[in-house]
Amino acid sequence: MQKLHSKQQQWMPVLFLAPAVILFVVYVIFPILQSIWLSFYEWDGIGEKTFVGFSNYIELFDDYQFWVALKNNLYWMVFFMLAPPIGLGIALFLNQKIMGIRLVKSMFFFPFVISQVVVGLVFSWFYDPSFGLFNKAIGLFGMEPVAILSDENWVTFGIIVAGLWPQIAYCMILYLTGLNNLNPDQIEAARLDGAHGWKMLRHVILPQLRPATFIAVVVTVIGALRSFDLVATMTSGGPFGSSSVLAYFMYEQSIFNYRAGYGAAIATVLFLIMDIYIAYFLWRMLKSEKA
C-alpha cells in the first residue's frame, strides 16, 4: 500500500501538470522560438520562406520608422513611471475612514476595469479639436485649440496620458492594499519620536510599501512596452507613423504589409528589451521565495 502511494506521488504531479504545460508549450514557448527563427527569413506570410540571415535586422536598424517607434516606447516608459507616484498620492489622499469612501475608492479604480478600446475612444473625444473638452479647457486660459492626435509633436504624449489613466488606477489599488497592511506599532513608535508628514512617509511608510512599489513598477514598465490597444484605437500609429510603438509597428508590418519575417524581427527586438525586466522580476521573485 505504502509503495503504491509513493509511486502515485511520483507520477501524479506529471499528470496534474501535463495539460497546462502542453498548452503553454504549444501556444507560448514554441511560438517564441518560431518567431525568432522566422526573423531570419523573408516571408510574405503565405508563400515560400527565403533564408536571409541578419538582413531583416540590418534593414530594421536603417529603418527610420523603427527608431520612431523605439523612441516612442522610451517616452512611454519614462512617462508611465509617473503612474506609481501619482497612484501613491491618490492612495494617501483616499486612505481615510469617512462615509462612502469605499465607493469612492472603487470608482477611482474604474478606468482599470474598462477596456482600453473604450479608454481610447473616451480620450479621442476628449482631445477632439472642434468640440473636445480638452480644447474647451485650454480655451479658458486663452490658448488656441490644439489637435493633439493629429499633431506629430503631441500625439504620443496625448496617448500616454490616456494610458496613464488606467495605470494610475492600478497603482493606486496596489498602494491602498499596502497602506492597509502597514505595521501600526512602527508608525506609533515613529510618531512618538516626533516623525510626521514627509519624514514619516520617506523613512517609515515607503520602506514598508516596498513590495507594492516593486509590483507597481514592474507592471508599469511591462504596460509601457506592451502598449498597443490605445495606439491602434486612437491613431493607428499616425499621423505618418509618428505615434507608432514597437508593438504596433510589428502588427502593421506583418498584417498590412505582408512582411512576416520583418515583423518577427521587430517582435524579437521587443522581446529582448522585455527580457531584461522579466529576468529582473524572476530574480527578485525567486530570491524572496528562498528567503
Binding site: L17, A20, V21, F24, Y27, V28, I29, F30, P31, I32, Q34, S35, I36, L38, G45, I222, L225, R226, F228, L246, A247, M250, Y251, S254, A260, G263, A264, I266, A267, T268, L270, F271, M274, Y277, I278, F281, L282, M285, L286
Partner: peptide, 20 residues
C-alpha cells in the same frame, strides 16, 4: 517550470503573433 510560467506571462504578444 514555475519560472517558465511566470516569464511566459510577461512576454509581448507580438512575439507570439505570427506562429499562433
Amino acid at each position: 517550470l514555475f519560472a517558465a510560467f511566470i516569464a511566459g506571462n510577461f512576454v509581448p504578444f507580438q512575439i507570439l503573433m505570427i506562429p499562433v
